[in-house]
Design a protein around this nucleic acid. Structure first.
Length: 354
DNA sequence: AAGGCGGGGAA
DNA sequence: TTCCCAGCCTT
């Protein structure tokens, strides 16, 4: 047998009431704050997003402040969080809330989901938490908990799986406390029914948990096969012009879109001298001295790729300003791709960033 | 249906 | 190293 839906509800709510973490967005039902927290937490751990959330609510107190802000400033506060597309959508949605909704968030999940950056999960989360709409959220925590407790061996990545989990979730939902119930399942999934080494001995649902009975805790939920990682090699140029350096903004559809970075050549091999010269010329740099390869090599393992970086330094004079290339004072504010690396690099060069 | 989009923590 | 995280969007 498996848990009756009613019993599941009760146990989840009991767990949440007793063990939930005190988090700043749990002390409010203000849709602006809930929305902010939910977007920040998309594919992001609570620990990692918490500081960003606090910065945002402090710097942008109301949705009007966010709507009126320059996108560069929003990027700056988003710097290092990843999935930078979210920052763009955050700005767009804030502006639509102010312009089309008079600063008030729409109250239904159906309307919320039409806003940029708000999908099925976020819409359901805001509607249930802020307005008590009886709608179940489905995030990775919920999918994991349901798949284990009810032994649901469907792939949520497939249409059939979405349907199966959706139906189960709808029936389990506590319609009287939808917000608490939703957060309760997620909290339970994050702290007890974890992906690895779930705490089954402390679990208040271990009695009839299908996965535990069948020893399938580590096998569930069923996942799609993973995508192989790709290697990418970036050869960056630190070009000093007096006390300025040259940066440019990534505009094409690719990783780090919208962020600033040093000019670079992407290639599987170390670029040759003639290759470098040709590139510098295309960037409007004709006069320079001392191209020296820095001994700094950098490797970063991201979710879907390996990033290898190598640096060349040179001094230039009389550069021609052309589109897409910026001269900035090294003290200036910009939003960088992998900022930690560049901060470290500039510090080493005794230049100060910020 | 599949793939792109990040950075960090944990094992 | 690999896996995973309060998902969304485009193709």
């Amino acid at each position: 047998m498996a848990y009756p839906y009613k019993r599941f509800r009760e146990l989840i709510l009991a767990y949440y009431d007793r063990h939930r973490r005190q988090l700043p967005w749990r002390a409010t039902k203000d849709p602006y704050h809930i929305w902010l927290s939910e977007v920040i937490l998309q594919q992001t751990r609570v620990d990692q997003g918490l500081g960003y959330y606090l910065n945002f609510v402090q710097r942008f107190e109301r949705v009007e402040d966010l709507a009126a802000a320059k996108i560069e400033r929003i990027y700056k506060y988003w710097e290092g969080l990843g999935y930078y597309n979210r920052a763009t959508k955050l700005h767009k949605t804030a502006q639509r809330i102010v312009r089309e909704y008079g600063g008030k968030f729409p109250r239904s999940a159906d309307e919320l989901i039409t806003l940029p950056g708000i999908g099925p999960y976020t819409a359901a989360a805001i509607a249930s938490i802020c307005y008590d709409e009886p709608i179940a959220v489905l995030d990775t925590n919920v999918v994991r908990v349901l798949s284990r407790v009810y032994g649901l061996q469907e792939d949520f990545g497939r249409a059939a799986g979405k349907k199966a989990f959706g139906q189960l979730a709808d029936q389990l939902l506590d319609v009287h406390r939808p917000g608490d119930y939703n957060q309760g399942v997620m909290e339970f999934g994050a702290l007890i029914c974890r992906p690895k080494k779930p705490k089954c001995t402390q679990c208040s649902l271990n009695q009839y948990c299908r996965a535990r009975i069948l020893h399938l805790q580590e096998e569930l939920p069923i996942k799609r096969k993973k995508i192989p990682k790709r290697h990418r090699f970036f050869y960056y140029f630190l070009i000093c012009v007096g006390d300025h350096i040259i940066i440019r903004q990534r505009t094409h559809r690719d990783i780090w879109k919208g962020l600033y970075e040093l000019p670079y050549i992407e290639s599987d091999q170390v670029p040759s001298n003639t290759q470098i010269k040709r590139c510098l010329k295309s960037w409007g740099i004709h006069h320079y001295q001392d191209i020296c390869a820095s001994d700094l090599k950098y490797k970063q393992t991201l979710s879907h790729r390996y990033v290898h970086a190598r640096f060349f330094e040179l001094k230039a004079k009389n550069i021609r300003q052309n589109a897409g290339l910026y001269l900035i004072n090294t003290k200036n504010l910009s939003t960088f791709a992998f900022p930690k690396l560049l901060n470290w690099f500039f510090k080493k060069k005794l230049l100060i960033l910020e």
